[in-house]
């Protein structure tokens, strides 16, 4: 195999659009740092580092989606469920920056596009979905798994739609049928989202079993505190 590119490469979307999204990404990350610091204590800080490292690792594991098409975890849903949307977006961004600067994966000029799609859209859509679902579902393992699964699909399709929008605004090749590209992009990413959903649900359940206090989604504001029954 010649190149291993998982993210938007250099030269796909024009410099103007890339620059606008770099500014959007930077502003979003600045808000995440300011807002996320409130959550970031001695326990969440190492957990967030682990979440970033884990997402890096699992992104390498391309799975079968269709003949000749693979998919891999993007990680936004996993990050949002484990460490919350603010710190989660920063975790995914760190992965994307390391990949762009060290592994030549994703153009440096496209970093704002990739961060917007996978880190910002991915985590915040997830957070919206999981806040809604956890409000109506009982706080049981099956419900947490179902929430993770649905949130992951939504986050992946959301990220893919972000790319379609960016390409519509600044795609460098003129003759691309945007409708067809959008259909393909979203169709393939529904399938990838199923894989992402399974991985996200399994991982969140595993963490919830061992250390429920390390699952941010379980102590979100809309929820009563859980796992206190182990207190003598």
């Amino acid at each position: 195999m010649d190149t291993v590119a998982m993210h938007i490469s250099n030269g796909i979307v024009g410099p103007g659009t890339s620059g606008v999204f770099a500014a959007i990404a930077l502003a979003a990350l600045a808000v995440c740092v300011l807002r996320g610091r409130r959550d970031l204590d001695d326990r969440l800080a190492p957990m967030a580092g682990l979440v970033a490292a884990f997402i890096f690792a699992v992104q390498m594991l391309n799975f079968w989606v269709l003949p000749g098409v693979s998919g891999h975890l993007l990680g936004g849903a996993l990050a949002a469920m484990l460490v919350g949307p603010w710190i989660g977006a920063l975790c995914v961004s760190i992965v994307l920056i390391v990949q762009a600067l060290v592994f030549a994966d994703g153009g440096v000029s496209a970093i704002g596009l990739n961060i917007t799609n996978m880190a910002v859209i991915g985590t915040f859509l997830t957070y919206g979905v999981l806040t809604l679902l956890l409000k109506v579902l009982p706080r049981k393992p099956g419900a947490i798994a179902a929430t993770a699964f649905v949130a992951a699909i939504v986050s992946v399709v959301g990220g893919a739609s972000g790319f379609v929008l960016e390409y519509a605004l600044g795609g460098e090749v003129g003759d691309i049928s945007l409708g067809k590209a959008a259909g393909l992009m979203i169709g393939v990413h529904v399938l990838i989202g199923i894989g992402e959903g399974l991985i996200t649900a399994a991982t969140v359940l595993a963490v919830a079993k061992v250390r429920p206090d390390l699952v941010y989604a379980l102590r979100g504001r809309a929820l009563a505190p859980v796992a206190q029954e182990s207190a003598a």
Binding site: V4, G11, L101, V102, F103, A104, E172, I176
Partner: peptide, 19 residues
């Protein structure tokens, strides 16, 4: 004609390029 047509060489590359 495809989107990948305008993809350029990665700006940095480096010893760990492409995993």
């Amino acid at each position: 004609e495809c989107m990948a047509k305008t993809a350029r060489e990665h700006e940095v590359g480096g010893p760990l390029a492409d995993y």
